[in-house]
């Protein structure tokens, strides 16, 4: 029974994961279409995670770009562990930390008015802007990162705990708090 439950917990062979792993294998062989497919499938997760850590669209875009260049050059060393998304987000997180370190040496992080930037993006609807604004301004940094990793990247709580290097219990309680806040904010008018 114990064995049965652990294997249930670790059951990660979703079609999505297999597709991502195929893409990574393709990228390792220099397949540019695979890189494009991987980008299309995972860039929302990479970008939103970078944005939620850096809170600056220019830096997030930098990280987004560098992340896939990194993937292109290191896909060959990826070892299948059934967690392609976690691997990609580890790269993203490291790039974010590098950005933060750069700023620590030179100056403070620029506090960008990213709402203005989003208004120039045609794909972002007015409702999207409200949602983004609430996520960026009303949630704490960690809450926002947890929500983004859960919703956009599709990570499990356990994987989020690993990715952010914080205890699982913290992830669970912060996620709950964040959801309660968002429910009030986004569902408030009903």
């Amino acid at each position: 029974m114990i064995l049965c439950m652990t294997s249930a917990n670790e059951f990660r062979e979703t079609p999505q994961n297999l597709i991502l792993e195929r893409c990574i294998a393709g990228v390792a062989n220099g397949d540019r279409e695979a890189l494009a497919e991987l980008y299309n499938a995972t860039s929302p997760a990479v970008y939103s995670f970078a944005l939620s850590v850096l809170k600056n669209t220019h830096d997030a875009e930098d990280v987004l770009q560098n992340c896939y260049l990194n993937i292109a050059s290191s896909a060959g060393s990826y070892r299948s562990k059934g967690k392609p998304m976690a691997w990609i987000l580890t790269i993203t997180r490291n790039l974010c930390l590098m950005k933060i370190r750069e700023y620590q040496k030179t100056a403070t992080m620029p506090n960008e008015d990213w709402m203005q930037y989003l208004e120039s993006n045609e794909k972002v609807t007015p409702e999207d802007r409200i949602v983004l604004s609430d996520c960026m301004k009303r949630l704490s940094d960690q809450e926002r990162q947890i929500v983004v990793l859960h919703v956009v990247a599709g990570l499990k709580h356990r994987e989020i705990a690993q990715a952010l290097a914080i205890p699982l219990s913290t992830v669970l309680s912060k996620h709950r708090r964040a959801l309660k806040k968002l429910k009030l904010l986004l569902g408030g008018e009903h």
Binding site: Y47, E61, T125, L132, C135, V147, V151, V152, L182
Partner: peptide, 12 residues
């Protein structure tokens, strides 16, 4: 779903 959509749309 709303969060996912909003962030996905914002990706440059």
């Amino acid at each position: 779903a709303k969060i996912k959509q909003a962030f996905s749309n914002a990706v440059p």
